[in-house]
């Protein structure tokens, strides 16, 4: 035989949570309509950075590919020449591919990168309906050209050799001095 409490109070008590919640702020995120920013160091899609003159920071050293636990990165290096220069120094990444269907966004590649060429953005809307489009190539990964940058290949504009770039002893950019 249920007690009085069980017969009358308990069924009402169950609604107590509901009633209390009616006066609380709604926690639901209206995701696609209102996007909440991620944590600043969220591991999203990669980006290949550029020097302020537009040259690529990537030197094609393949250390990211070596660090990758999922074997999601493929890099092929090639030689910079005087006529065709993509990065300061001898070597640049001719082929750069990240397979986002393997990548676990762990960030070990970022730690391995000796020139800070590879970093991660906060972008996460990556879903696609086929496998081929989820292999991002170099042109998909390269950072956009900001004002003052010039599309490589071009000569080193900020210094005489790669040492100037790595040490940060840039010569003032042309358009800045003019302005």
């Amino acid at each position: 035989m249920p007690t009085l409490k069980e017969q009358f109070w308990d069924p009402v008590a169950g609604f107590g949570v509901t009633f209390r919640t009616m006066f609380k702020k709604v926690v639901t995120e209206q995701y696609p309509f209102e996007k909440k920013p991620t944590a600043p160091r969220f591991h999203g899609r990669h980006q290949l950075n550029r020097w302020p003159d537009g040259l690529e920071k990537c030197i094609g050293c393949e250390l990211c590919a070596w660090a990758c636990p999922a074997d999601a990165i493929y890099v092929e290096g090639a030689s910079n020449t005087e006529d065709e220069r993509y990065s300061p120094g001898e070597r640049y990444g001719r082929v750069y591919q990240i397979n986002y269907l393997r990548c676990i966004l762990c960030g070990l590649c970022i730690e391995a990168c000796p020139t800070r060429a590879l970093t991660m953005t906060n972008e996460y809307e990556l879903a696609d309906d086929n496998r081929a489009d989820l292999i991002y190539e170099k042109q998909d990964l390269l950072a956009p050209l900001l004002p003052g940058m010039e599309q490589p290949p071009h000569a080193m504009l900020l210094g005489d050799d790669e040492g100037d770039y790595y040490r940060g002893s840039f010569r003032p950019a042309k358009n800045e001095s003019e302005a």
Partner: peptide, 9 residues
């Protein structure tokens, strides 16, 4: 072989 590959690969 210049810049063709890395030994660990």
């Amino acid at each position: 072989y210049r810049f063709r590959a890395r030994p660990f690969d």
